[in-house]
């Protein structure tokens, strides 16, 4: 068993969306290396409540790396130093006694801070609403095995579909671009035969919505795939670019 640690936290505190925020310093004492990062913050918060101070607000839900709710930038890196891991699965054994850790919210114009480390990511929902689906009403479906799908296509679609919509790709991108998120959905549905009828429309609508939301533009740094907790590959972005060109060439934009 390794020993407990004492850490200094510098945390972004912001009262609400309209206020300005700033970094404040807290001490996290007797942190067990077996704690998850969020449990460490839980302990700090318990202490703050005891003292009558406002605890640090942060988002989390499933705490097993799948819901995509947790979202914080640790020392400049979304979800922290361990790759392929959401912050709820990051454990304190990756830190050393005496470390100073800076914790900030996702930062992007389309993700306004609601409080402290909590942001509003509904822009991502609106992008899905623009076309990130296959139009099949309940009960209309043909028999499941009527349409064979190659294992390769199905597996690749699953690679893209693994996206948890956390927004770390946006947070990591120096331009705050949402291309990895969009490409994951366009790739997932575009790789499957069921997704073909709406393929052109989907990419056109989703990109148009993405642009409307005020995300930045992709400059191919691939920081997104490096921080992605589900390791969604940036090659899906190339695929998205290709699909977009095809859709525009076919005149989808004026339909």
């Amino acid at each position: 068993m390794s020993k407990d640690m004492n850490l200094t936290l510098k945390v972004w505190r912001q009262k609400d969306q309209a206020s300005n925020g700033k970094m404040e310093t807290y001490q996290a004492k007797k942190v067990s290396p077996d704690m998850s990062f969020l449990e460490m913050l839980d302990v700090v918060n318990e202490d703050l409540i005891q003292k009558g101070q406002d605890p640090i607000a942060f988002d989390s839900d499933c705490r097993e790396g799948i819901c995509g709710t947790c979202s914080m930038v640790i020392d400049g890196v979304p979800h922290g130093p361990q790759r392929g891991t959401t912050v709820c699965q990051l454990h304190m054994r990756h830190f050393k006694d005496g470390d100073t850790i800076a914790i900030e919210p996702w930062r992007a114009r389309p993700f306004p801070v609601l409080k402290d480390l909590i942001t509003n990511r509904s822009a991502l929902d609106r992008i899905i609403q623009a076309g990130g689906y296959i139009s099949v009403s309940t009960g209309n479906a043909p028999a499941a095995n009527a349409l064979p799908i190659s294992k390769k296509a199905s597996d690749e679609a699953m690679d893209a579909a693994a996206c948890i919509g956390c927004g770390a790709c946006v947070a990591a991108c120096k331009n705050a671009s949402a291309m990895l998120f969009v490409s994951a959905k366009v790739g997932h549905l575009g790789l499957l035969p069921q997704g073909q009828p709406e393929r052109d429309k989907r990419v056109w609508k989703m990109i148009s919505q993405m642009d409307k939301e005020g995300f930045g533009n992709c400059t191919n740094t691939y920081a997104c795939e490096s921080v992605c907790p589900k390791r969604v590959s940036a090659s899906f972005i190339a695929r998205l670019n290709r699909d977009y060109a095809v859709a525009v060439a076919k005149g989808e934009c004026d339909r």
Partner: peptide, 11 residues
Amino acid sequence: QCVAQGVPFAR
């Protein structure tokens, strides 16, 4: 229904 929606079940 789920296959039609594009759920990538194992194949």
